[in-house]
Nucleic acid binder design. Structure first.
Length: 549
RNA sequence: GGCCCUAUGGUCAAGCGGUCAAGACACCGCCCUUUCACGGCGGUAACCCGAGUUCGAUUCUCGGUAGGGUCACCA
């Protein structure tokens, strides 16, 4: 077989050689330890928590080492490209503080290693494939879908592994004349890698590779003649990945563990092409508990997988980032406790510290982390965030916020002043529910009075409270009155007294306050009542008590 | 089914041959307190199973088991 002739028949138009591309895309001029990472989403328009999770790793690894983080759009699929998908990807990630140094942008791309859309790199791939053909490391294959189906059926009945390899790889034996004939006849074909791995399943060899997260991995070598160029002339992911990450000089490839099983293919491709493989970091899949079983987060069933979920719930991007960091690196929380006031960027992130078993997504933990994050954010900034969030996701409450900054900021700051600030606030949706009693239209009584307070007592408490109410009382004068009201009705003035002699009292001052609290805010838990009344104003305070009587 | 990855409390997760097996979230209790919180202190709760190596295994090896992934002209 004259490989040269074959390659020219198949790719007459390709003139540039791999050597040319080596010159066009020289090694990057970066500090010795700089890492070059990339995010390679396919433009389906759906970007999820897993993407963000991976993107964080990419971003941290690159920027921590003065390296480069770039965006490459992997659109080799003939599936429909969703309009606006690239914009969605970029803006979603930007919202969470992830920015690219290079690659695809809203309106094209920037950087010297492009183009960054795989669909625009056809000639480059074909040049490498032509080279492989010349070296006898690849071949055209004219097998039809049906023929492949037959092969598979035969393999199944023989209990052989499926695929095109060994004696099944009939395309390997075609003569130049047969190939030319097929092409003249207009038969579609793909290009397959001529794998040198042993197809003898009993004793084919393995190789070891160091994974950046998992350590030493032992895998069987590839023996499949995988497709590297589809009939459409577009390369498969495998080929595109290897050529691009080499040419774009990627040093670290961060991807999900679902890629682990195609690693042998990639390693063989790197080898055949004469490239140095990058360091692979295979991340664990994000999981969810479902009916007692762990399972992969799914697009359909789990709204929390979508990045939009966090945006529409009104989580602050900082909070999500903080949460992701805690599940990404086990030592982050510890570091955070020691460094509460610095930026998370100061944390030294390491791939080795990543867990290699699937982390379960924990909304509880997110909320807890979020509380800690929000407590540090000034009311002014929270207000700005909240209005922005409402404008986009909850326009019906926007009128309550807009132009009302003084009022809202006072509310948000309730109990946050002292040394031990309250941690009430989690996300936009929750914040609004938490403070909605400040708006008459949203104020409802949600809870009943404590069990040990009779209906008559409740009415008496509120009646006396209203009668003695003086809006200008300071906090201690105000509370003394509540104590007196309670004592008159048989409630202990101090919870301790009640605990010591529970039989001597109907309850304690806490129960009395709860009645007032429910009348004022509709529930048993809220910030300090006195402060709430000061914000609510005298008229509303009185009328709410009155209407409860 | 073949191959690969994984396996410590309800969840996340330290550990890397000898520990009373960290810590965080959740839960429970107590304390603080002028109510609700915050905070502080404490508690319940774990090494998947079986062999082997070893004086000694959560840790190493091998088998099971379970969960996950993957077996495309999708990425």
């Amino acid at each position: 077989m004259d490989n040269n002739k074959l390659s020219n028949i198949l790719f007459p138009q390709i003139e540039k050689t791999p050597a040319d591309y080596e010159e066009i895309f020289p090694k990057r001029n970066l500090p010795p330890k700089a890492k070059v990472t990339r995010l390679g989403p396919s433009p389906t328009g759906f970007i999820h928590l897993g993407n963000l999770y991976g993107a964080f790793v990419d971003e941290r690894l690159a920027h921590q080492s003065d390296g480069i983080f770039y965006l490459r759009i992997e659109d080799t699929d003939d599936k429909r490209y969703v309009e606006g998908a690239v914009e969605t990807i970029i803006s979603s990630l930007e919202f969470f503080g992830i920015t690219f140094d290079e690659g695809a942008t809203m309106d094209g791309h920037i950087g010297d290693y492009g183009p960054y859309y795989q669909s625009q790199r056809g000639e480059i791939y074909q040049s490498y494939i032509k080279d492989l053909l010349q070296k006898g490391l690849a071949y055209p294959c004219f097998l039809t879908e049906d023929e492949i189906g037959e092969i598979r059926a035969a393999q199944e009945s023989e209990k052989q592994n499926p695929g095109i390899y060994g004696k099944w790889a009939v395309g390997r034996n075609l003569s130049l004349e047969e190939i030319e004939g097929n092409i003249k006849a207009g038969k579609p074909y793909v290009i397959r890698l001529k794998s040198s791995g042993s197809s003898d399943i009993e004793n084919h060899s393995s190789f070891s590779i160091e994974d950046g997260i998992r350590g030493t991995l032992t895998m069987p070598e590839n023996y499949q003649d995988v497709v590297i160029l589809k009939a459409t002339g577009i390369p498969t992911y495998h080929m595109a990945h290897v050529v691009d990450d080499h040419l774009m000089r990627t040093t670290h490839v961060i991807r999900g563990e679902e890629w682990l099983s195609s690693l042998p293919i990639h390693i063989e491709l790197f080898d055949k092409l004469g490239f140095e493989p990058p360091i692979y970091c295979h991340t664990a899949q994000l999981m969810k508990l479902d009916d007692g079983n762990k399972r992969k987060l799914s697009k359909r069933k789990d709204p929390e997988l979508s990045l939009d979920y966090y945006r529409s719930e009104g989580y602050l991007p900082e909070a999500v980032r903080e949460y992701l960091l805690t599940i990404l690196n086990s030592n982050y929380e510890e570091w955070r406790m020691a460094n509460p006031n610095t930026t998370p960027d100061d944390f030294l992130f390491s791939a080795e510290k990543m867990s290699n078993s699937g982390a379960l997504f924990d909304l509880n933990k997110l909320n807890d982390v979020s509380k800690d994050v929000l407590v540090k954010i000034p009311a002014k900034d929270l207000y700005i965030f909240l209005t922005g969030w409402a404008r986009e996701f909850n326009p019906e409450i926007l009128p309550l916020l807009d132009g009302n900054s003084d009022y809202i900021e006072k509310i948000l700051d309730l109990g946050r002043g002292g040394k031990k600030p309250r941690k009430d606030l989690i996300c936009g949706k929750q914040i609004f529910q938490f403070i909605n009693y400040f708006f008459d239209d949203h104020f409802v009584i949600e809870e009943d009075y404590p069990e040990n307070v009779s209906k008559e007592d409740a009415t008496a408490i509120l009646t006396n409270y209203l009668a003695s109410y003086d809006h200008s009382d300071d906090q201690s004068q105000w509370f003394d009155k509540i104590r007196t009201i309670g004592e008159d009705l048989g409630y202990a003035a101090k919870p301790k007294d009640f605990k010591k002699n529970p039989d001597d009292f109907k309850g304690h001052v806490g129960h009395v306050s709860t009645v007032i609290r429910i009348a004022l805010v509709g529930r048993s838990q809220s910030p300090d009542i006195w402060e709430i009344q000061q914000i609510l104003g005298e008229d509303r305070t009185r009328s709410r008590i009155k209407s409860q009587i």
